[in-house]
Computed example of a mutant assay.
Amino acid sequence: MIDQAFAPAAAAVADGHIPGATLGIVAADGRRWATTAGMAALVPEPEPLTEEHWFDLASVSKVIATTMMILRLAEEGRIDLDGPLTDAIPDLRQYDIAGAAERRLTFRDCLTHRTFLPAVEPIYTYGDDPARLRAFVLQREWKRGPPVYSDINYILLGIAIERITGAPLSDWPLGPGLRFGPPPGPAVATEHCQWRGRVLKGEVHDENAFALGGAAGHAGLFGTVAGVLEFAHGLLDGSGASAATLEAIRTRANGDRTAGWERRFPGWSGGDACSDATIGHTGFTGTGLWVDFERGLAWTLLTNRVHPTRHRDSGIFTLRPATGDAVIAAWDG
């Protein structure tokens, strides 16, 4: 099964579109499959990819870490999802308490990306002190626009978690094979960062997450294929999430978005063969996780498509759905 499912990724590696790829599949009954091909690094030194390598999960951090943290805090009664962010961050836009639209944003607004905040902002260009940059995020008057998928939403959620718990995100307990960086084992190389002047390996690729100290609400999580599969299995069999959390991440709340995740729609990253009860999320570095609750099946495609540069056509936007369709074909066949 795994060879058939991995065929699109194996071809992408063989054709030189991406340096390396790992595919992992897990069933609700606990059966697991994983395979890998290609290189963890091409430069400065070649390094073959193994299943033990840690990937920079990029925006998959949003669903494995931040979304789960926020929903847990809500279950514990420490936040109201429909309450304003100011319940946790009272100093948000504190110089315009009466008029700032940011002060009316709720936790659920940010979870489901239904805010007016921009998709991204080069926060790292405003300084190199994490505390000062958090203050910048909180006091900035953000330009208003239509709702979009936004890193800023999750940076705010990450700050809220830190305020509520009194600890950095990296202190939150995660399962084996998952942690905010640096990882404890061999790491997959990402980009030669022009800003940092080096090939990134074992440090977060996202510039804003790096500038914010390495762990932020939108990025910073590293994981092995086994770690990602263990998390996915916890969703499939209910051992890793409560009924309320599962309902929140599976229920559409803003178009095709749930709390944190996307739910299947035509032409999405998970392919067209999966059931309507499938959720998924991708990461800029070339990662992704999809969970088909109807089939009791989840898969993760982990690549280093930005190595050694993001400024090339890796074909990742066609590889992801092709892989999803191949996984379902292998499973159903």
Score class of each variant (00 low, 15 high):
G220N: 08
V228W: 07
F222G: 05
R140Q: 11
L156Y: 02
E207S: 04
G197K: 01
G166Y: 10
M1E: 10
I279L: 01
E76H: 09
A41S: 14
G240Q: 05
T67S: 08
T50K: 05
E162G: 05
Y95M: 06
W268C: 15
W195M: 08
A28D: 07
Q194G: 13
L174E: 10
F210S: 10
G214H: 06
S61R: 06
F293T: 10
A37P: 08
W195K: 10
I161Y: 03
W268K: 06
T287L: 04
P308F: 13
H233Q: 15
G197P: 05
T245L: 06
P308W: 13
I89F: 00
Y149T: 08
R198Y: 06
S275L: 04
S242T: 15
G181C: 12
A326K: 03
R295N: 00
T224C: 14
I249Y: 00
C110M: 09
V228C: 08
L156N: 00
A322Q: 14
M1L: 14
V228A: 07
V43K: 07
F284M: 07
E203F: 11
I249N: 01
E141A: 15
Q4T: 15
G234Q: 07
V199L: 05
F317P: 00
V199Q: 02
E294H: 11
S61V: 14
W268Q: 06
D82M: 05
P173V: 08
L157M: 07
M39N: 02
W195S: 04
H192A: 15
D332F: 10
I89C: 00
D325K: 09
V228P: 08
E51P: 10
A248T: 12
A40Q: 07
G158V: 12
G333Y: 11
G20K: 05
G77N: 03
A5D: 06
E102V: 09
T251R: 02
N254L: 02
F284G: 04
G202E: 03
R179S: 14
R295I: 09
G255Y: 03
P48A: 15
E76P: 08
A273D: 13
G288Q: 10
S170G: 15
A211S: 13
A298I: 11
W54H: 07
L174F: 11
F210R: 02
E76Q: 14
L85T: 02
N254K: 02
G145S: 08
I316Y: 03
A277C: 12
A329M: 07
L85Q: 01
E162Y: 10
W33E: 15
S242K: 06
A131Q: 13
A98T: 11
G213S: 05
T251V: 10
R250V: 15
E162C: 08
G288E: 07
G271P: 11
E141G: 09
D325Q: 06
R312K: 12
E52P: 12
T106E: 00
N208G: 11
D256K: 02
G271Y: 14
T258N: 01
I2D: 00
M68C: 10
A40H: 11
L235A: 01
I152C: 00
P168L: 10
A131W: 09
A58M: 12
L235T: 11
T50E: 07
P90V: 09
A65W: 13
E102W: 03
P266D: 05
P44I: 09
